[in-house]
């Protein structure tokens, strides 16, 4: 089965991925993704009806700990990495009118 990825699909995936692709990138993405999905179709050769999906190879359990603060106040250092900051907080574009 050959996968044809159309403009609507790329637009939709772009919204999910929070990416804005240029015209050239869109065309490449359509081609790349179609080709990759064709390749991924080889998985359909496998009968997996009776197989349980495995998310982790070992049985893992939630790890709980007491709600105790162990790290100090590192606000100034953390804010050093912020692209924009104001009054000890991250500065972002206006979100509510």
């Amino acid at each position: 089965m050959a996968h044809l990825i159309d403009d609507d699909m790329i637009e939709y995936v772009g919204i999910l991925a929070k990416l804005e692709l240029s015209e050239k990138e869109r065309e490449e993405a359509k081609k790349d993704m179609g080709r990759m999905l064709d390749y991924i179709d080889t998985l359909n050769e496998l009968d997996t009806d009776e197989v349980e999906p495995m998310s982790h190879v070992f049985p893992i359990h939630n790890v709980f700990r007491d709600d105790v603060v162990t790290n100090g106040d590192d606000r100034d250092n953390i804010l050093k990495n912020a692209p924009e900051k104001k009054d000890g907080a991250f500065k972002v574009p206006k979100t509510v009118e």
Partner: peptide
């Protein structure tokens, strides 16, 4: 499907 394949590979 991929997670099921992973189980088969394991």
């Amino acid at each position: 499907k991929a997670l099921k394949t992973k189980a088969l590979i394991k």
